[in-house]
Computed example of a mutant assay.
Amino acid sequence: MSKAEDLERIVVAAHALTRIAAIETRNEAPAAQWRTLSILRTEGPLRLGELARESRVTQPGMTRLVTQLHEAGLVERVEDPSDSRATVVSATAAGLRALDAWLVQLSSALAPRFADLDDDDWAALSRAATILATRTSMTMEASR
């Protein structure tokens, strides 16, 4: 198998894991909510347009989502001090707690699927997770 095919398999498997976890946790919150809160935790406050671009949704779609998250107390919206026409969005403490709780739900839901792995397989997954986390953070920084 080629390196490109291995990367493709990782991406497809990651999407499948996300879908499986969402189904098994019975969490009805949209994936975009968790993706948005994750981006805000990693990147800090962002202008609405930047947040839409990072999340790969339209600006009107992000505006709707941010309105819902704001009404739920998960994000704050403030006027950008450098441009009164723009809005800056940040995660609230409640939003970060909700994200943390969801991540615990995800790992708990997925744990049984991996319970039979031996120490070598766990070490391989741990190493892969470290490499992926490093490479994805490098890519995100370079795209700015």
Score class of each variant (00 low, 15 high):
Val78Ser: 12
Met62Gln: 14
Glu76Gly: 10
Ala128Gln: 08
Arg64Ser: 10
Leu117Pro: 05
Asp83Ala: 04
Arg127Ile: 04
Leu99His: 00
Asp116Arg: 15
Ala101Thr: 12
Ala93Ser: 08
Ala98Asn: 03
Leu106His: 14
Glu76Thr: 07
Leu132Asn: 03
His70Asn: 08
Arg135Ala: 13
Glu79Asp: 09
Ala133Cys: 08
Leu74Asn: 02
Val78His: 03
Glu71Leu: 05
Asp120His: 06
Leu117Trp: 07
Leu69Trp: 04
Arg97Phe: 04
Thr130Trp: 12
Asp120Arg: 14
Arg113Leu: 14
Val66Cys: 06
Arg77Thr: 12
Ser137Lys: 13
Arg113Glu: 08
Thr58Arg: 15
Val78Thr: 09
Asp118Gly: 14
Leu125Asp: 04
Asp83Phe: 01
Ala128Asp: 03
Ala52Phe: 05
Leu125His: 09
Ser84Ala: 12
Leu117Asn: 11
Arg85Ser: 11
Ala133Phe: 13
Glu50Lys: 08
Val57Met: 15
Met62Ile: 04
Ala52Ile: 01
Thr136Glu: 06
Pro81Glu: 03
Leu51Ile: 00
Ala93Thr: 09
Leu74Thr: 00
Ala128Lys: 05
Thr134Gln: 04
Glu54Ser: 05
Arg113Thr: 12
Ser84Met: 14
Ala124Arg: 09
Arg97Gln: 14
Glu79Gln: 09
Ala91Arg: 04
Val104Arg: 01
Thr130Glu: 15
Asp119Gln: 12
Ala129Tyr: 00
Asp118Arg: 04
Gln68Ala: 15
Asp119Pro: 00
Glu50Pro: 01
Val66Lys: 05
Thr92Asn: 06
Thr63Tyr: 11
Thr63Ala: 15
Thr87Cys: 00
Gly73Lys: 00
Ala129Phe: 07
Arg77His: 02
Val89Leu: 09
Gln59Thr: 14
Ala129Ser: 12
Ala123His: 06
